[in-house]
């Protein structure tokens, strides 16, 4: 009896070991396979971030980043997919493989590199600006002392205000963090805040499309946009970068840039 029990146990253990080993080997295989024979690519975007990524009039996501990514996918023969991330959870959603990259006017932060994310080379020079109402009397950030300023949670503007620009932030009355730029702008329009601290291209786009707002021209330091990939996806990053080079060569990139004249001046990859 004992012998039979031992035999059964041994069999079970052997089966488990083999099974686990088999599983391990299998996962490795699939990982390699998907990278070599990738058929689809999901870009993670902030759906409320014009002109880089937003919901177009036809109900499809569009914008500069979306169009470039689409061209990259067309070039590489990948099926192009868009996933709208929750901006303040973007890296968690990237890690949980809901998307393959975050590519949506994303400012490159040192903390992302420190956390192991693969960041593409920068493609856009960005700066932060203050957006105020046209009829207000604010001319510089100094005029906003004691006033309320809104910023989107998870943006570089928020990171700046709690980091490098914390001295400036202390002069403001309240810093209101909102979950999208749309709500920041609503707060400003509804007089709940006095200014919005926001990326220049988004502010320019908003001023161009809405009446009664203006941008305070002041230098808060430069930063750059890049694409974030998971820590293990250096190869994927290289393939996407190579594809971007290719579409720059064949003129596709320039054709997309032409559609977005407001941001063309700050693009880094055009020659």
């Amino acid at each position: 009896m004992k012998k039979i029990t031992a035999l059964v146990l041994a069999l079970i253990i052997a089966a488990l070991t083999l099974g686990l080993a088999g599983c391990g080997a299998k996962t490795d295989d699939t990982a390699n396979e998907t990278e070599a024979e990738r058929t689809s690519f999901t870009m993670g975007i902030d759906p409320e971030y014009p002109p880089f990524s937003y919901l177009g009039d036809d109900g499809e996501y569009t914008g500069f980043d979306v169009e470039v990514c689409k061209a990259v996918c067309d070039y590489l023969g990948w099926e192009f997919k868009v996933f709208a991330v929750n901006w303040d959870e973007k890296l968690v959603q990237l890690d949980s493989e809901e998307c393959d990259c975050v590519w949506s006017g994303m400012t490159i932060l040192d903390s992302m590199k420190d956390a192991g994310y693969i960041i593409s080379r920068p493609y856009f020079d960005n700066e932060q600006v203050l957006l105020v109402k046209d009829d207000s009397e604010y001319k510089s950030s100094a005029d906003l002392a004691g006033k309320d300023v809104a910023v989107q949670l998870g943006t570089s503007g928020e990171a700046l205000l709690s980091g490098d620009l914390s001295d400036l932030a202390k002069t403001f009355g309240n810093i209101v963090t909102a979950n999208s730029f749309t709500s920041c702008f609503t707060e400003l329009a509804g007089n709940a805040v006095d200014a919005v601290f926001v990326d220049a291209p988004v502010a320019q786009d908003y001023v161009a499309n809405n009446e009664g707002f203006r941008i305070i021209d002041e230098d808060f330091g430069a930063e750059q946009y890049g694409i974030a990939f998971r820590s293990g996806d250096a190869d994927l990053c290289a393939r996407v970068e190579a594809a971007i080079d290719a579409i720059i060569e064949n003129g596709t990139y320039a054709a997309i840039v032409e559609k977005y004249p407001d941001i063309a001046g700050n693009l880094l990859l055009t020659k």
Partner: peptide, 12 residues
């Protein structure tokens, strides 16, 4: 929870 999210962001 909003403050928690802010910290989660700045500290990754």
């Amino acid at each position: 929870f909003t403050i928690g999210k802010q910290i989660a962001n700045s500290e990754t």
